[in-house]
């Protein structure tokens, strides 16, 4: 199988280049990450992140044939040759397929992705009805791989000011949580022309999410809540 892989080592290379690589003995049930690990045996300097190898940790997100995804759950058999691998778009490249996710995490942190409760701590756990719990389905599963935010044109143009789909999905995850008591504070944090409203409903985020989540609908829910609150 033929591969074309983005290579850049800032200590050696003056600019990035695409490296052509061949891999023999690939099996039908092999995932892309398996192939990358084989390629790394050929060229040890090839760098990429990976950890769990089963789509749970979100480390090996990359741009695969022009589409963001996780290498470990992308079957080789589904990819057209030459398989072109690039780092996630829009973020600074550290080396080869590794990007600096600082901006992504900063936006995530800024939505306060944890429960804020003003009431005194109860003696037993904070209870939810099954219906209240159901509202968190499709929100809590995010693994922060960054595929959505780095496929979002609005995030490319304003990564410092626009929160991006991943952080906005988490903003809604805590707004939707019956146990959270900071609704007003959270909504206030999302006001202004940039943080939430740079979203133009392009829906690339929904298209690429490897977990099948829908940040666009979460953003819509936040807007609806804002409207309800302002009336």
């Amino acid at each position: 199988m033929r591969f074309s892989i983005y290579r850049y080592d800032p200590e050696k290379d003056s600019k990035p280049y695409m490296q052509e690589l061949e891999l023999e003995n690939t099996s039908d049930d092999m995932m892309l990450l398996g192939a990358l690990l084989e390629l790394k045996k050929q060229d040890e300097s090839l760098s990429f992140r990976r950890s769990c190898q089963e789509g749970v940790c979100g480390s090996d997100s990359m741009n695969i044939n022009g589409r963001n995804g996780l290498a470990c759950i992308t079957p080789l058999s589904e990819l057209k040759e030459p398989i072109t691998l690039r780092p996630l778009p829009g973020l600074p490249v550290v080396r080869d397929l590794i990007v600096d996710m600082t901006q992504f995490y900063q936006q995530y942190r800024s939505v306060k992705p944890y429960l804020i409760v003003h009431d005194p701590e109860p003696e037993v756990e904070r209870k939810q009805t099954p219906e209240q719990r159901d509202k968190l389905d499709g929100l809590y599963e995010c693994i922060l791989c960054g595929c959505c935010s780095t496929s979002c044109p609005s995030f490319w143009w304003n990564p410092d000011k626009f929160l991006g789909p991943a952080a906005l999905l988490q903003a809604w995850r805590f707004l939707a949580d019956s146990r959270d008591q900071a609704e007003e504070e959270r909504l206030k944090n999302l006001e202004g022309p940039y943080r939430l409203f740079r979203c133009h409903t392009i829906m690339s985020c929904v298209d690429v999410c490897p977990k099948g989540l829908n940040p666009t609908s979460a953003i819509g829910n936040i807007k609806n809540l804002m409207i309800k609150r302002s009336i």
Partner: peptide, 12 residues
Amino acid sequence: MRQISGLGSWIW
């Protein structure tokens, strides 16, 4: 002013 440029413009 913030209202105008965020939620306000989106609604208008």
